[in-house]
Write a protein that binds this DNA or RNA. Sequence first.
DNA 1: GTCTATAACGTGATAGAC
DNA 2: GTCTATCACGTTATAGAC
Lengths: 208, 208
Amino acid sequence: MRASASKKPPGTNTELKIKAAARVVFHKKGYAGTRTRDIATEANMNLALLNYYFKSKKHLFELVMLETVTTFFQTMGFVFNDESTSLEKKIELVAEKYIELIMKEPQLPLFMMSEIRNHGASILEKLPAANMILNSVFIKQFKEAADKGKISEPDPIHFLMNIMGLIVFPFISSPMIKKIGKLNDHQFDSLMLYRKKRIPVWVKAMFK
Amino acid sequence: MRASASKKPPGTNTELKIKAAARVVFHKKGYAGTRTRDIATEANMNLALLNYYFKSKKHLFELVMLETVTTFFQTMGFVFNDESTSLEKKIELVAEKYIELIMKEPQLPLFMMSEIRNHGASILEKLPAANMILNSVFIKQFKEAADKGKISEPDPIHFLMNIMGLIVFPFISSPMIKKIGKLNDHQFDSLMLYRKKRIPVWVKAMFK
DNA sequence: GTCTATAACGTGATAGAC
DNA sequence: GTCTATCACGTTATAGAC
């Protein structure tokens, strides 16, 4: 006999299954490209259940989107606001955490970028991501290093763009990369694991 | 009195207008997100004309897509296969040409990546892009430099990913970048112009 | 070639039985 | 809570007049 163990209501089982299926399909096909029927099928559920648990396709999408974007920025937030790690260590951790995250969910970056372009402002408004980053320990450490002349580029926005570009771009362009490099999925993953170690080295060299 | 100047039939005027409108709308909203009515409106045309000149939405899309992808890779092809320029010069030219191209059409990279993910293989099969790059003068020069120990990373695929990541990622993530950096459109463009000069420097430092 | 009207179909959502 | 059947609507595509 199982006691009702959790403190917060986790939602029913079917509700969770639907949301998980929605995540998979939305991430793969985007909002405009997914059919609610695809989600139902992916969840092994009836179509009517989608509208019973979640009012509409739009509402379900917004739930998924918010969770996805939150996850993405939290990964950065945890690393960037750790008082106990150095600037160099933070670069290593960001590369490590993001490459691990995206290897588990390769669709994530392209999904986020596409849908933010389409549904734009409204998504980003809901998140305190901008200030979370601007006021982070990371930025403070970066500016200190820049003031001491240890960094050749004073604007941290380039630092951020470069790190994230090196991490994220290969995943976004993976079909092309695989084609050009004549790589299968496994070989592509190996390259990304290799980059996990090399990106911090490259970044340090760039800004030295 | 205008002579019929061109050698190849350019298509009628309305046909070209429709295709131009289709490019704009498809680039902005993607295949699944665009309505044929949107294209007709953008072109100031009647909806029926779309199907008269181009058989279907899908067919029109494939024309646009092929032209877009071709343009994208040709930009790389011209630079990479110039026998008269050095490896270093090629890096400068790629950064310059792509940043200029994408500043004129900011939707281009995200459109390409998204639609290649969806309609996948079929698009890339039509292009000899992979071999064009692999057999390029650029790759030859890269390998020569690597053999002489002038480059710390022997696999050119990382070189390519890094250059393109530094160039393309900021555009793909521009809504986030603008939010995080509290930038307006003009300030964002200034950053990209700055990067046009800096990316070659960064790339050289990375692989030295 | 261009237009209006409409057919044919797909999709989001709901009613109502169980 | 779950299912089947169906509605209401938007969208692509075409028929047919001009």
